[in-house]
Simulated scan of single mutants.
Amino acid sequence: MASHIGKLPVAIPAGVEVSIQGQEFSAKGPKGSDSYTIPECINGKVEGSEIILEPVNDERPTRADHGLSRSIIASIVEGVSKGFSKHLMIVGTGYRAAAKGKGLELSLGYSHTITVNPPEGITYELPNANEIIVHGTNKQLVGQAAANIRKLRAPEPYKGKGIKYQDEHILRKAGKAGK
């Protein structure tokens, strides 16, 4: 039994080169390159401008293996063609970020500044002192790098100070005067 998601073909956009040799999938595009090892129970092939994943007859993949492999391959193709980004906002008086080489230097209300260096394949952009944009080709790595920065000073519920995602809504609590 195959996955409904796994059955869907993955479209290959213009400017992206894709190859499947055995169980090794690799993609190269304008933003970079990435690879993935397809599980043994799934065959991958390139037909025209689409990637098709099919279960091997003698071994039945679980729906999760089939759908997950298709989702990872689709993310790799999107990452090497367009890239991924996460937008973080810094809220609070005196809280700010500054570029320091390839990394960031964050002032978050502690007695010291915090230096954050990007993992391999990740870049930071600072439109102003209160915004950080994390860019990269690997969806999981971009999300993890943004989560690591947010974790340094998570938003608090009383005044909303801290680092939050741009589209995140912080539930506010009433203070002592709100009895």
Rank of each mutant, 00 (worst) to 15 (best):
G15W: 05
S33T: 02
P118H: 11
V80E: 10
K151C: 05
T115L: 12
E24F: 09
L126P: 03
I132V: 13
K164T: 02
E105W: 01
A98C: 04
E125S: 12
E120T: 11
E120K: 15
A74D: 12
P157F: 15
G121V: 04
I20G: 02
G162W: 07
H87K: 14
A64H: 07
G48L: 03
L108T: 06
K139Q: 09
T123H: 05
E168H: 04
H135I: 00
K31A: 02
Y95V: 06
L152H: 05
E125H: 13
I73K: 01
H112K: 15
K179S: 12
G136C: 06
P30N: 07
Y158V: 10
S3Y: 03
R172V: 10
A129T: 00
D58F: 14
T115N: 12
V80Y: 04
Q166G: 00
K100G: 07
I170C: 03
G178R: 01
L53A: 06
L104N: 11
N43C: 01
K7F: 08
D65K: 04
V18C: 10
P118L: 15
P127L: 08
P127S: 08
V16Y: 12
S111E: 14
L126F: 00
A154W: 02
R150G: 03
Y158W: 13
G79A: 10
G178C: 06
V91N: 12
G92R: 13
G67C: 06
T113W: 01
A14V: 00
A99P: 04
R150W: 04
Y36F: 15
S71P: 00
V80W: 11
H87Y: 14
A11T: 11
Q21R: 15
A97R: 08
Y124Q: 13
T123M: 06
I90N: 13
S111F: 08
L108G: 06
A98I: 07
H66N: 05
G67A: 11
V10F: 05
R172M: 15
K151P: 01
E120Y: 10
S49P: 03
C41I: 02
Q140V: 02
S85L: 10
T113H: 08
D34T: 00
